[in-house]
Simulated scan of single mutants.
Amino acid sequence: MAPVRIVIGRDEESAVEDSPTPKKPIRVESRVSLTKWEATAAAAVFLIFSVGLVCIFITMPEAEYDKILRIPRNLSDLRVLKDNLAMYARDYEAKFILGYCSIYIFMQTFMIPGTIFLSLLAGALFGVIKGVILVVFSATSGASSCYFLSKLIGRPLISWMWPEKLRFFQAEIAKRRDRLLNYMLFLRITPSLPNTFINLASPIVDIPFRIFFLATVVGLLPASYITVRAGLALGELKSVRDLYDFKTFAVLFLIGFISISPAILKRKRAYG
Rank of each mutant, 00 (worst) to 15 (best):
I129Q: 10
G123S: 09
L53E: 12
G99W: 03
C101F: 02
R167H: 10
F49E: 05
Y65H: 05
K165Q: 11
I48R: 00
P156K: 05
N84I: 02
W162L: 12
F148H: 10
Y88G: 07
A143P: 00
S138I: 05
A171C: 01
Y100P: 06
A86Q: 11
R70G: 03
D91L: 13
R90Y: 07
I112R: 11
K95G: 15
L47S: 12
A63L: 01
A122E: 08
K82H: 09
K151M: 12
F126E: 06
L152K: 06
G99S: 06
E62R: 08
D83E: 13
E93D: 12
L75K: 05
I153W: 02
M161N: 10
L47K: 00
F57K: 02
N84C: 02
A94V: 14
R79A: 10
S144P: 02
I112K: 13
R155A: 15
G99E: 04
F117K: 03
V132H: 10
F110H: 07
L134W: 03
F148R: 07
V128K: 14
M161D: 14
L121Y: 06
L157G: 07
Y92W: 08
P61S: 05
M87R: 15
Y92I: 04
L78Y: 06
Q108K: 12
F46C: 15
I133K: 12
L53I: 13
W160I: 00
A143C: 08
M87A: 15
E164V: 07
G123L: 07
Y147E: 08
I116F: 10
